[in-house]
């Protein structure tokens, strides 16, 4: 999983990463991470990462494969709990609540911090059932009409309703890749999360479907705080307001996307976004 070779080849070893440059912190933070270390067994995947996710903004996490950006993202809603050897240290807070604190119920946390995955993964159920899944589990609807409403508004927010309104009872797996991914986003929205984490949500899609998803992300930021991991720098540039550049498990630079893409401050960031290797 951790492919360090490609990361190593990017920056010559004499370029030092000495704490993150740029502006990793902000006043209006939805989530704040301080001095986070993540270990896989004896292997340290994340080294002392600190930054904030700004409220109602899209923050892009970019970096070469194996730089730990996905690992980090999965810490934010404790998906890494599923991996027994994974160990998280440091402080991660959602609205001031400690995510890895004793009072935090990981199941409820994941309802507040939803996740969209790399490969569209609709459940083997109808489109309606896919979206209704979360609300049913969390008892968000008291009767059928309320559930219908949640399903419809979620599908609308995901820009999918008009395409599927006549076939809500058909399997979600019968949709095209881009539609499936929007269904997964609708499914995530349906439980009214506060933060949406996206792990390369468009990497399995064609350019048009990707553009649709990106436009959707742009609209979603009005209501949700979004963190997106992407391999495509262009995508990060297009959808995000803030960009964080990871390298070998460290946060190298974070700042306004425009600034990162026109005038990065760190040499490694410059090398990465301009496609210079070695």
């Amino acid at each position: 999983m951790v492919d360090i070779i490609s990361a190593k080849s990017l920056g010559s070893n004499d370029i030092k990463i000495d704490g993150a440059v740029g502006e990793p912190f902000c006043d209006d933070a939805k989530m704040s991470m301080r001095n986070v270390d993540v270990f896989y067994g004896d292997n340290q995947a994340i080294h002392d990462v600190s930054f904030d996710l700004e409220k109602n903004q899209v923050t892009a996490l970019i970096g070469p494969s194996g730089c730990g950006k996905s690992t980090f993202l999965r810490c934010l809603n404790r998906m890494n709990d599923l991996i027994p050897i994974c160990n998280v240290k440091g402080s991660l807070q959602l609205d001031g609540e400690e995510i890895y604190g004793k009072q935090m119920d990981p199941v409820l946390l994941r309802a507040r911090v939803g996740m969209v995955f790399q490969k569209p993964n609709p459940f083997p159920k109808s489109i309606y059932e896919n979206v209704a899944y979360g609300p049913k589990i969390h008892g968000l609807a008291t009767d059928k009409s309320e559930l219908d409403e949640i399903v419809e508004t979620s599908l609308r927010k995901a820009g999918l309703f008009n395409e599927v309104k006549d076939r809500l009872d058909q399997p979600g797996t019968g949709l095209s890749g881009g539609q499936q991914q929007r269904l997964c986003i609708a499914r995530t929205i349906a439980v009214s999360p506060e933060v949406i984490l996206m792990d390369e949500p468009a990497s399995a899609l064609d350019p048009i479907a990707t553009a649709v998803i990106e436009e959707l992300i742009h609209e979603l930021k009005e209501k949700y705080t979004i963190a997106i991991v992407t391999h495509s720098m262009q995508q990060a540039a297009r959808v995000s307001q803030k960009t964080a550049y990871f390298h070998l498990g460290k946060l190298v630079e974070m700042g306004d996307t425009k600034q990162i893409f026109t005038n990065p401050r760190h040499e490694l960031t410059e090398n990465y976004i301009s496609g210079r290797f070695g």
């Binding site: 998906m79 995955f117 083997p124 899944y133 499914r187």
Partner: peptide, 19 residues
């Protein structure tokens, strides 16, 4: 991916298995 999708929405382990 399916399992993670369900867990990622705040379903418990047994709910995920059942549904």
């Amino acid at each position: 991916a399916l399992k993670e999708g369900s867990l990622g929405m705040g379903a418990t382990h047994s709910e995920t298995i059942k549904k």
